[in-house]
Every structure is written in structure tokens, then in C-alpha cells.
Amino acid sequence: MIYKFITNNPELARYAVSCGVQRIFVDMEYLGKEERQGHIDSHKARHTLTDLGNVRKAVPDAELMVRINPVHERTPAEVADVLKAGVDVVMLPMFTSAEEVAKAGALISGSARFSLLLETPQALTRLDEILELHDMIDEVHVGLNDLHLGLGLDFMFEVLSGGLVDVIAGKVHKAGIRFGFGGVARTGEGAVPAELVLGEHVRLGSEMVILSRTFHQNARSVEELKSKIDLGKEIEKLDACLNGFKNGDKSLLEDNRQNLIAAVRSVVREKAIA
């Protein structure tokens, strides 16, 4: 499992890698984010090209991913800048069509791996056409937050419990592309317990997950993070949970799926009452 850690702090990035994080995630997306997510508690930091360069220097041997803006008039310059900074993976968010994917993919042109953040109803509907571009796509990560907002749902994990992620995973795997989804809290925590979500990662053949802000309590420095959690031990707990599901039988995964569905329905009911 590739754990993605979002930060623009070079020292925090270096520490996260030393604790077992495989991929540092610098987030340069800002176009439209406030309008979409301004009413919810989500990651909205605006990282910069300077941040990207500083983090690259701090973790020269780790995977470095950058989320650029959705396709717009400055996309060619934006892609050129992040490639020059030496990123390993470029993530395209909020795409709605195969044409947008093809444009960004052509700009990257194999100079970095190309990651799609599938998070719009349009992209979901047009997924078959988008995956026809499989030769230029290296991975697909389902963004539960924006996708649930776009679908008018009440809770992001409804996308998972309702079976939509199953459909996406099946299509992505068939295209021979690496697949992942969402974020995860620490074991024993989360509105839906992290263990239930991790079981679904195993059942669906996911290889990537974001360590959520709740996972590291939105720490902005190494000192702050160390004062809150032992990052290395928490990652070991995730690994142990994943291995438990991988070494179990299909009935374990099916029982976990049913428990996740029940947990999600409970959260949705509570939101309706509130």
C-alpha cells in the first residue's frame, strides 16, 4: 500500500518518509476548491512551486507527487513548471472528459507518472472512454470527498458503501491501471472506523490511500506531529490491519463490507437528524 502524506514542509516530509511514508503529496490545486468545499472541513492549503522545489530537495529518494489545477488556460505552463521541479507523479483533479485527460497526458508525455483523481460525476459517467487512454494513464485515485458532493450525497463514504467504488475499481483494474481511493484515519478512529475502510481497500485491490488530516491531526511541523502521535507506529498498525485482511478469507472481507455499510448508514441517519 502506498501511503500519501500531504505537506509542503520539507522537514515534515523527510520525517514522514523515515517513518514509512512512500509518497509525499504537494497540493498546488486552488482553482474552484473554495467554491466546492468552502462549507466543509477539508484540506484547502495552497502549496506553491517554491514549496515543491524545497520538498524535492528534502526527499530526493522518495516519491514526490503534485496535484496541479484542473485543465485551464495555464495548464501547459503549470505542467512544465512541476516537471522541471523533478516530480515523480502529476495528479490531475476535477477532470470531466477524455479530452481533458488527453491534453494533460500529452503535456506530461512520460516525463512523470500520470495520476487521475476521479472526483466528478461527469468523469464517472465517461470512465470507459477515459480509460481508453490507458497507455498514458499510470494510476486512478477516487476522490470520495468531491465525488460525494457532486453526486449530492450526505457523506463521502456513501460512494464506497453504495458500490460505486466497486464499479470504478473493476474498470480500472481491467484497463491494467493502478487503483486507489480516499483517505484513512488511524486505526481505532474515524467517523467510519479505519479498519472497516482498510478492509475495503484489500477487497477492491486498492494500492494507494491518503493519510488524512485526522490521521496526523493536521500537524504542521515535526515537533507538533511527535507531540501528538508516533507516526511510525501508526503506520505499522495500518500495515498489520491490511495484512490481517489479506491473509483472511473472502468471508472476512464480506463481513467487513457489511459492517462498513451499516456504519455508513448510521452516520447518514445521524446527519439527517442533526
Rank of each mutant, 00 (worst) to 15 (best):
residue 52 L to H: 12
residue 53 G to K: 08
residue 59 V to Q: 03
residue 59 V to M: 00
residue 60 P to Y: 04
residue 61 D to A: 06
residue 62 A to W: 09
residue 63 E to C: 12
residue 63 E to N: 12
residue 67 R to P: 07
residue 67 R to H: 10
residue 69 N to D: 11
residue 69 N to Q: 10
residue 69 N to S: 10
residue 71 V to W: 07
residue 71 V to F: 15
residue 72 H to A: 12
residue 74 R to N: 05
residue 76 P to F: 09
residue 77 A to M: 10
residue 80 A to P: 10
residue 81 D to F: 15
residue 81 D to W: 08
residue 83 L to D: 02
residue 83 L to I: 05
residue 84 K to A: 04
residue 84 K to S: 04
residue 87 V to F: 05
residue 89 V to P: 12
residue 94 M to E: 13
residue 94 M to T: 08
residue 94 M to W: 14
residue 94 M to C: 14
residue 95 F to Y: 15
residue 99 E to T: 12
residue 100 E to Q: 15
residue 102 A to K: 15
residue 103 K to I: 11
residue 103 K to P: 05
residue 105 G to N: 11
residue 106 A to L: 04
residue 108 I to F: 00
residue 109 S to D: 10
residue 109 S to Q: 07
residue 111 S to A: 11
residue 111 S to Q: 14
residue 113 R to Y: 08
residue 113 R to M: 12
residue 115 S to P: 07
residue 116 L to K: 07
residue 116 L to H: 08
residue 116 L to E: 05
residue 117 L to A: 07
residue 119 E to Q: 02
residue 120 T to D: 01
residue 120 T to H: 04
residue 120 T to G: 02
residue 121 P to T: 00
residue 122 Q to M: 03
residue 122 Q to F: 03
residue 124 L to S: 02
residue 125 T to N: 05
residue 126 R to V: 05
residue 127 L to K: 04
residue 127 L to R: 05
residue 128 D to H: 13
residue 131 L to F: 08
residue 139 E to Y: 13
residue 144 L to M: 02
residue 145 N to Q: 01
residue 147 L to E: 03
residue 150 G to K: 01
residue 151 L to R: 04
residue 152 G to E: 02
